[in-house]
Design a protein around this nucleic acid. Structure first.
Lengths: 152, 152
DNA sequence: CTGCATCCCTTTGGATACTG
DNA sequence: CAGTATCCAAAGGGATGCAG
């Protein structure tokens, strides 16, 4: 029987309650760590949105101000940049510093927490880079043999 | 000056062209590895959607048929299960085997590629588990001090 | 310069009904 | 059982205009 790959909370302060062994699959409603699992998924969804990772990546090695970020991230709209930055600030992944000057100047910097997330995401990115050819090949092969997927 | 965290394509066959060093941040339009970067992001978006990870997690250690998956993943609709399974099959992360019996029976199994992705995602999940308390604390603190975020 | 508010179009995804 | 098709509601996100 193959190994079961599980997530166990390694670091941080001792868990004050449940076993704290969460596998990525969710359980039936009512299972003990369903809540923990949902929480993990909610955090993982940070990765899902279009801009968070890009922004964190840009702040990798230096503080940037709003306008610099706006230019750095290429396709992002002002609205989404603001919203995403607020989320990331709320989660404690970056800090927002307002300089009371005129014109106003706001600096964004990655926190320690944000840095560790970036490390983890980079690891996943390595997987993507390592397998992108394989995946593209798979897709081409699939598209060639299986005609239309969700045809308009 | 802190280290620059970068992604470099480690395994696979030698890259047939560019340096193949992709950092997570995208470049200005026209930069060499913009395409590669977009591709990586596209793959990372696998993580973003609600169901892919859950499904892959369920197939971790055994083959499941459609109905089993449907019951296993809890909140997924039949429609989304089908669509997500097709995507994953297209990418080569799982295999779909139709048994010509009556009533029909379709088995889904994780491929080698899918298994390695799961390993990487589990690593990210470990980060989430390790820091979920910290993040929750940050959010509470933020909400307490910064009144309404995007008020209705 | 930074950022909030509004409008509006696009995408996502659930519910439901129907087929091989 | 394992889908496919249709309809529809909610969320995502761009463009623009205004404010501190």
């Amino acid at each position: 029987m193959p190994h079961r790959r599980t997530i166990s909370s390694a670091s941080q302060q001792p868990d004050s309650g449940r076993p704290a062994t969460v596998d990525l699959a969710d359980g039936e409603p009512g299972e003990q760590d369903e809540e923990a699992c949902r929480q993990v998924l909610r955090i993982l969804s940070l990765i899902g949105d279009k801009w968070s990772i890009l922004i964190i990546g840009k702040l990798r090695d230096r503080t940037l101000r709003f306008g610099e970020l706006h230019r750095a991230v290429t396709g992002v709209s002002q609205r989404m940049l603001t919203l995403t930055l607020r989320q990331l600030e709320r989660d404690g992944l970056l800090t927002r510093t307002v300089h009371p000057s005129v014109p106003p100047r706001v600096d964004y910097a990655l926190t320690e927490l944000g840095g560790t997330l970036l490390d983890s995401v980079v690891a996943l990115g390595e997987w993507a880079v390592a397998h992108r050819r394989e995946i593209d090949d798979n897709r081409r092969r699939y598209d060639a043999t299986h005609p239309p997927l969700t045809r308009s």
